[in-house]
Design a protein around this nucleic acid. Structure first.
Lengths: 258, 258
DNA sequence: GCAAAAGTGTTTTAGTTACACCCATGG
DNA sequence: CCATGGGTGTAACTAAAACACTTTTGC
């Protein structure tokens, strides 16, 4: 709803006050590629253009709460029931942009958030946005409103860096997943190909990362894979993988690149 | 000047607008320890308490510009003449805090910045602050106003992480420095002891990090050390050290800890 | 000469890469 | 029984940690 709000330009009321928005870089992995959630704007400015979901922060709410609210309003995405911050839904602050030269209406501050989530069912449009949809990252086809191209690039770069030394790649997976699924996340986010056998050893051998459930999954061809979940009590922000899962550049010319 | 500004509490004017401040975590290395710059507040709230330098963002200025202005006003610290962002002065955005439950006057957003700088001459007080001074990080003696303890901790953690894979440790050194000075920075920031010989090899052998000046420095005892500068054209934010200078924990019981 | 710090060489150890090989399932 | 993917073993390679040793200064 919020994108209707302030009558810009200029500083409303007191000096030192600014309109503040939140924008969300929501990433997921679908079909082997990294995808970002965008909405089509129904209002000026940039009416009809794609943009990151977001909107003005309301009085009395935290920034994180505002990010979740705008995401839910504009795309229908909500945190899964048991999400205690550990599982398949990770929201963290990215950085703050503005207030100058980013909104034609005047100085606006935007606090960007980064969401890593599994490929949920297709989101529903609502609020100030029509047709929320996933777009593939890095194919050059997206040109977003405001400075959202840059915010998206920053979010993607953050995700690429973070899965290297934190267990956050699991945030792209459902609660229980196979090692191959997890490897697919790394390959999609980094745009590289990883050796399945070495990856398996590294991922399962890293303390504080994966915990076997004992059950098997996968109905495809080949031997069924064991199901894992994130190790219990893992704070994905604080835990550090030792040694890190380094990006290994393989001589695969067909691998998708950034 | 700015900390006088808005008549809080409540939302001034339009919904979606908030008073916005910048706060600066300014770190340096002096006497073998990591130190942070704090000021004593002259005004309520938290009058007389130590706090990070900072204040309200003014209309028409960028966040970074506001951070530099408040730093100069309250502490006298300014970027050195030739600082193109490469050398001994690195300012980057840390994260944004608020707007709830952090200022007794009401909801205020604070965008924190992190400054890494060499041990400049002692700063001069001014503006809304009396007696700017350096305090040692991690000795538990500092209890700052607002949520500045947490902001300081976040800044220190960012600095510790960043010098591992970026050339930013050089931001703590003068334009030309010895390998031992650089090692002293790592030891102070990480609170560990590093093997001087292995560190020398790693630092000088890392491509895109150090460049020898050909001249010698240091008048102390022992063999004079070669002077180095940062490799030319280095963007400290973008450059990645490969391999990273990992924190090596040595069994030195006398090493200072965080 | 002696202490102290700079800088180099070498051994040991650990982690990564590449790949051979076996396992378990569907068709 | 064959294709397909899951998972283990292992040798070659590479980087890091530990430390002996030489260099160059001040006193």
């Amino acid at each position: 709803m919020a994108r209707t709000a302030p009558a810009l330009p200029a500083v409303p009321g007191t000096a030192g006050s600014f309109p503040v928005t939140v924008d969300v870089v929501a990433l997921t992995v679908r079909g082997g590629t990294l995808q970002a959630l965008v909405v089509d704007r129904l209002l000026e400015p940039f009416r009809g253009r794609a943009a990151l979901p977001g909107g003005f922060v309301l009085p009395g709410e935290t920034l994180e709460r505002a990010a979740e609210r705008e995401l839910a309003e504009e795309t229908g995405l909500t945190a899964p029931a048991g999400a205690t911050g550990v599982g398949p839904w990770h929201l963290e602050q990215l950085r703050t942009y503005g207030p100058l030269d980013r909104d034609p209406r005047g100085p606006v501050l935007s606090v960007a958030y980064l969401l890593l989530a599994p490929a949920f069912g297709l989101p529903a449009a609502g609020g100030d946005a029509a047709e929320a949809r996933w777009v593939t990252v890095g194919d050059g086809a997206v040109h977003l409103a405001f400075d959202h191209d840059r915010i998206l690039a920053d979010g993607v770069e953050r995700a690429r860096a973070k899965i290297e030394y934190s267990p956050l790649a699991a945030a792209f997976c459902p609660a229980e997943f196979t090692v191959a699924e997890l490897r697919g996340v790394y390959e999609a986010v980094w745009g590289t190909r990883l050796d399945a056998r070495n990856f398996h050893r590294k991922a399962t051998g890293t303390p504080g990362f994966l915990e076997p459930t004992g059950r098997l999954g996968g109905g495809g061809p080949g031997r069924p894979a064991e199901l894992y979940r994130l190790a219990p009590g893992v704070d994905p922000t604080a835990t550090v993988l030792h040694p890190p899962l380094l990006r290994q550049v393989s001589p695969d010319p067909g691998a998708p690149s950034a």
